[in-house]
Design a protein around this nucleic acid. Sequence first.
RNA 1: GCUGCUAUAGUGUAGUCCGGCCAAUCAUGUCGGCCUUUCACGCCGACGACUGGGGUUCGAAUCCCCAUAGCAGCACCA
Length: 486
Amino acid sequence: MITALSEKHEKKTGLPDLEGAEKGVVMRFAPNPSGPLHIGHARAAALNDAYVKQYGGRYILRIEDTDPKRVDPEAYATVQEDIRWLGLGITEVVTQSDRLPVYYDLCKQLIERGGAYVCTCDNEHFKELKQHKTACPCRSQPVEKSLELWQKMLDHGFKEGEASVRIRTDLNHPDPAMRDFPAFRILDSPPHPKVKAHVYPLMNFSVVADDHLLGVTHVIRGKDHIANTRRQRFIYDHFGWTVPVYRHYGRMGIEGVVLSTSQMRAGINEGTYSGWDDIRLGTLRALARRGILPEAVKNAMIAIGIGDVDISFSWDNLYAENKKLVDPTANRYFFVPDPVEARIEGAPAHTAHAMLHPSDAARGSRTLEFTGTALLPKAELVPGTAMLRLKDLFNVKIAWNGDTPSFSYGGDSLADARAAKAHIVQWLPAQATVPGTLLTQEGEIKGACEPAVRAELGKVVQFERVGFVKIDTVGVDGVRAYFTHK
RNA sequence: GCUGCUAUAGUGUAGUCCGGCCAAUCAUGUCGGCCUUUCACGCCGACGACUGGGGUUCGAAUCCCCAUAGCAGCACCA
């Protein structure tokens, strides 16, 4: 009885169940190769990935490159790199431009079944007819005629815009978007970078063909595809195929970064952005450069879930996910922003040992040789400050002559520093530092950091009291690091 | 305009299908405290929401209606 009562209130973890997924799933991620992947893509990619992992099955990467206008030849590789970075469990890759003959063949079959016809009407004219729920003359032409025109399309007998294949739906459908929508069109230019073609399938046709042929069982995509799902159902019905299970998630608003591929490309060409991984962009490679881990991105997306309500993406939540992953592993170092050289009178030379990680002594420590002069963060030298504690070293007394400080040794006692409510600050031995530049989305912060940071190239470390950073470059002129989050 | 979808704290999310266990979950955020030779991590506490109005019912976040708001689609893009 107790179990019966508690059953309804069992806490669900993670994503909601998918209907009909018990025996495994076949899902797909289907980007358009027009540029690198961004956070928006990551949602679809991560959600589908999570379900495939949960239920077991296949995860298809399908490159949807049937519109030569929207294909960037470089993006084929870029997209694959981004997916590798994200760590998706892709089991197979399909490129639609390789499959044109497949679509052509199915199109012929569909015409034979009466599910589609070739339309040679002017596009504007057709639109007009469609609005008034009236058929164009081509709709009632015999199947043989359509077949003949279809062959003519394939044989280059038409120019761009002169003919198209339309799916026969319901001209009285209340939604004009559903009425006899197009399935193939002719394109003279630009040439497709991968294949010689003249007749291209539209997304609604190639997607149905591939989803069916590849055995896709579940589709998770944005709600901008709801109308497409309804359109695609007409094609499934014409063929008598089984329709996959669909889920449409809501629109995700993302503030603070640029996401539009065309805007990014323009900015890069004009030199506004340094590249696709400029940290002001919302690309995955920009996140990577800033020290966001792929797991954090996936976790954040799964936490958002598949609700069909529009949401606004929260950087705080992403950062929190990232911090969970990064905090236990990141080594700690001193970075002194806006360093001020401080000669400390009466201070004994001393070798400080600071732990690489405060909760993991086994990781060891770094040594800092103090010999008389230290670099201190300017922000801590507020006139009137009487004492600072240099972390892992000793106390420093500060005397003020107007705005000019002078420093003297204040003893080793931590208790004294505590009693004086002195800030415990990061510092560097003046004779052993490396110039460091911290790059944030707001700008650069010049400073100095421990020489040992040079060995952390490519890793995320924590600059104590500053935040987590990704060591981006190490050169003769010092270290450049990107600010990840606090 | 037409067609459709949705509405829980600052943000995300659970609960809504099958009304009572929900004075509403978890996370994040903010604030306060503890811990600490980092303003990190951890721990404790506080703050904060069922869009509005009707209806059905003994009882509504949950069902119905209306209003409002937001979104999507209405491309020979995906």
